[in-house]
Each structure stands twice: as structure tokens, then as C-alpha cells.
Nucleic acid binder design. Structure first.
Lengths: 197, 197
DNA sequence: AAGCCGATTTGACTAATGTCAAAAACGGTC
DNA sequence: GACCGTTTTTGACATTAGTCAAATCGGCTT
């Protein structure tokens, strides 16, 4: 877990210390935008063509499953924070339709980069290829840790972890997002919260 | 899911079609071994120094947690099959102590490659770097899918999936491994099986 | 074939979580 | 400050999975 954070620092440093030529090339193909709360960076069923670097704000990735008796259920599988590269991994790297949607949780400043542009940058600048690789490794380890947590910890422990790691999140997003992220219903989450204080 | 398998085929093809020079360099630094059932490719708490390509046989990666009242509990988090690159991802790529152990489930033929040797090969042969990257991407997508399955499917559905995707597995490994992999107790798994036929 | 040992199944009971429905709390608007 | 819609909490009950213990099954040995 500490190893995870140091990996994250490594790729963020590489981003900050791009060589002038790589920086110029990067700036030429990316665009910075301030996008409103609720904006979709990626829609379920569509190919995710861009990867966003989150400068400020937050986002979530979620999956809509149709069947549920009481309408569709919306299950959040991850949250994103500043410094994260935001995309639907499989959809972006394989350019296939996404199984999930990504939505901003608040107004956010992002830097957008298209798939083709990223591939060109990677081919031309080893340092950018390195960032891409490290950030993917980071994501992979984050996933490993999440599975660990889903398999080994109780819902109450997972909520406590979340409170510890992302306290601000609990302030600003609906409980239903957090509950589905933890793999429980919002009633159960509410009861866990009641028991804590 | 289909995208996943095609990605796997892509990296396996690259392995088969290495250029003669890359092949020679690869053969020079790897060793093929036939290892017995129960052999540990990696021990919990130690740095995983090698990555194994599984030629035949199978393996599992598991985590021992000490606390349990009735002795330590042993939770399987993945199984490996021929064509897989077998290692503890975080431990190998960051060279930090592993949180899990990897054990052969039967006598297996493997090709062993040390961390330093892999880094040299990657630097010298772009095609090997490409294989490493694709296989990591494959693993990442596999993890994503596994989280999906843990979060969206019931234990019974996950067992049915396993039966469909890895039928041979059910024949040769103890139910307790499969149960912990599915995130349930072996009694529950036994009851699920009883209900199926 | 009998005996043994580990793996699996079954049973009875308990604990945890889900479901459905209603009440309370909260936020923004007029 | 009253009103409205949304979010969160609470309650009662059903369902699912976990726990502990005993019975059965299967393969192996002698």
C-alpha cells in the first residue's frame, strides 16, 4: 500500500519533469477544459476515445445494469481524484465499447488526450511511454488491493478504510455511490455509520 | 471478455514469433525446469525475484492470514494456467516483499526469468518490452473483470462461470481453494454444488 | 477387504445483509 | 420560515451465508 503510493509519486514526478520537447509536443495535442458537474467523460456502450488527467475535482466510474426489479441499478466501481488518469481502461486501451460510464462528481479541470495522440507521443518520447506504463502499473496494483479488500475485509472495515483514505469523499457524494462501491446496499451502509459514532 | 482473450492471443503470438536475435538472448537468460506439485514459486513475505512462464501444469496464488480462530486461513486469489506469466505482480515489478505465495498445483514445466534479466531484455528488444506491456494489460483487464464478478455476481453465478471457463480446475483442486477464490466458505460452495445437479 | 485419513456433504443454528416501506433529516426555493 | 423533493435513517421481516459439529464419501495402505 505504501509501495503503491510511491509508485504514484514516481509517475507524477515524471509528468512534472517532462523534457521541453516532450512538453511542447504534449501541449500541442492536449486541451485543458473546465467541465461541469455531471459531465460524462465516457458513456457506457461507447468507445472511450480520450484519457483525462484530473487537475482538480473528482469523478466516478460506474456500471448500469438494466435488469433490477426496481429500475436500473447503478454500481460505482471507482472514484477518481486529482493526479489520476481517468478513463475506462479496457475501452481506451483496446478501443472497444466501454462497459461503464465515467461522470464528474463536481466541476473539474481536466487535460484531455486522444488515443491516437497518446500512441504517437509514446512512440516519439520514451519518457511519455514510461509514464503511461507506470500509471498502468499503478492502476493494476490498485486493482489488486481492491480485490484484497473486497475478499478479506467486512463492509464495515472497507468503509473505515475509505473514511481514512478519502475523507472528503464522504462529504460530497451520495451514500448510494459509496454503498455500491463497497458492495452493499445503502441501508446497510447507513446502519454501519450509525454503529460507528 | 472476448476482448480479453484476443489480447491474450496477441501476446502469446508475439512470444511465438520472437526475432532470432531476441530469441537467442531470451534463451540465454532463461532456464526451463520441471517442478514438482507443491513447489513454491514465491513465498509470502519475500521478494519475488523471478517470473515464470507456465508451459504445462497449473498454480495458484494465495494469501495466508494469521488471525483466524481455527488456525490460519488460506485464501486463494487466482489460478494460473499454461501461457500465463506467473508472478506476484506488485512484488515482482516493484521488488518488494510479496503479500502472497504462489504454489504449483501439480507438476509443471516452467520457464524462469529473473527480474534483472527481464529489464535488460526489455531495454534491448522492443518486442519483448511489448510482450511485457501487453501481458500486464491483459492482467489488468483480468483484474477488472474479476472485480466486476465479485461485485455483480452471486457466488452461484461465479461458480458457474468458473465451471464454464476452467472446467478441468474443478476436477483437480480441493474445494477449499475454489471456495476462498469465490469468496465463500467451502460449506456454502458444497451447497451450491448440491443445488446445481 | 478392512481401516484410515482427508475431503466433502449435510444438519441445526446464528449472524449478517437484503428488501420493502415508512419516517425523519437535509437543502434549496419561493 | 414554510414547502417540496431528495437523501438518509429506521423498522420489520425474509433471505443468504457463516459457524460448528457430525456423518458420509473416496482414495490409499496394509
Amino acid at each position: 500500500m505504501d509501495a503503491l503510493q510511491s509508485l504514484r509519486r514516481r509517475y507524477l514526478q515524471l509528468v512534472d519533469n517532462l523534457s521541453p520537447s516532450a512538453r511542447t509536443a504534449y501541449d500541442a495535442v492536449t486541451r485543458r477544459e473546465l467541465l461541469p458537474k455531471g459531465y460524462y467523460l465516457c458513456r457506457q456502450g461507447f468507445v472511450c476515445r480520450t484519457i483525462a488527467t484530473l487537475q482538480s475535482g473528482s469523478a466516478r466510474i460506474f456500471h448500469l445494469k438494466p435488469e433490477g426489479r426496481s429500475g436500473a441499478t447503478d454500481v460505482t466501481t471507482a472514484f477518481f481524484f486529482p493526479g489520476d488518469f481517468v478513463t475506462s481502461f479496457q475501452s481506451f486501451y483496446l478501443q472497444v465499447p466501454s462497459q461503464s460510464a465515467i461522470q464528474l462528481l463536481e466541476e473539474s479541470a481536466v487535460t484531455l488526450l486522444d488515443y491516437d495522440a497518446l500512441q504517437s507521443l509514446r512512440a516519439a518520447y520514451p519518457e511519455i511511454d514510461q509514464i503511461d506504463r507506470l500509471s498502468n502499473d499503478y492502476y493494476t496494483m490498485w486493482l489488486e488491493q481492491r480485490i484484497f479488500s473486497l475478499q478479506f475485509h467486512t463492509a464495515a472495515e472497507r468503509y473505515a478504510d475509505l473514511l481514512r483514505n478519502e475523507p472528503y469523499l464522504v462529504q460530497k457524494v451520495p451514500l448510494s455511490y459509496i454503498a455500491s462501491y463497497l458492495g452493499i446496499t445503502l441501508e446497510t451502509l447507513s446502519r454501519i455509520r450509525a454503529r460507528i459514532d
